[in-house]
Simulated scan of single mutants.
Amino acid sequence: MPIVFRKRKKIGPIILNFTENGFSSWSIKIGRWSWNSKAKAHRYDLPGPVSWRSKKG
Rank of each mutant, 00 (worst) to 15 (best):
M1L: 13
M1Q: 10
P2N: 03
P2H: 04
P2G: 13
P2Y: 03
I3R: 03
I3P: 09
V4I: 02
V4Q: 06
F5R: 05
F5E: 07
R6S: 13
R6I: 11
K7Q: 12
K7G: 11
K7C: 08
K7T: 08
R8L: 07
R8W: 15
R8E: 12
R8A: 02
K9L: 14
K9W: 13
K10Q: 07
K10D: 01
I11E: 09
I11N: 01
I11F: 03
G12Q: 08
G12L: 01
P13R: 07
I14Y: 08
I14Q: 00
I15S: 07
I15Y: 07
I15G: 02
I15M: 05
L16V: 10
L16P: 04
L16S: 09
N17A: 10
N17V: 13
N17Q: 13
N17Y: 09
N17G: 11
F18H: 06
F18K: 11
T19K: 08
E20G: 07
N21M: 03
N21F: 02
N21T: 07
G22L: 02
G22F: 03
F23L: 11
F23G: 10
F23C: 00
S24L: 07
S24T: 06
S24F: 08
S25R: 07
S25G: 11
S25Y: 05
W26H: 13
W26Y: 15
W26G: 10
S27R: 13
S27E: 12
S27L: 01
S27C: 09
I28A: 03
K29A: 02
K29M: 04
I30V: 10
I30W: 06
I30C: 04
I30S: 01
I30E: 01
G31R: 03
G31P: 02
G31T: 06
G31W: 00
R32C: 00
W33L: 15
W33N: 06
S34Y: 04
S34W: 04
S34A: 09
N36T: 00
N36E: 09
S37N: 14
S37Q: 12
K38R: 11
K38G: 06
K38Q: 12
A39C: 07
A39M: 11
A39R: 10
K40Q: 14
K40V: 03
A41K: 12
A41T: 12
A41I: 07
A41L: 00
H42W: 15
H42P: 12
R43D: 04
R43F: 06
R43H: 06
Y44N: 10
Y44H: 11
Y44K: 00
D45W: 10
D45R: 13
L46T: 02
L46H: 05
L46I: 07
P47V: 04
P47T: 01
G48Q: 00
G48N: 09
P49G: 12
P49E: 08
V50H: 05
V50M: 10
V50A: 04
S51E: 11
W52N: 05
W52T: 04
W52R: 08
R53T: 14
R53Q: 12
R53A: 13
R53I: 14
S54T: 15
S54P: 14
K55W: 14
K55I: 08
K56S: 13
G57T: 15
G57L: 14
G57D: 15
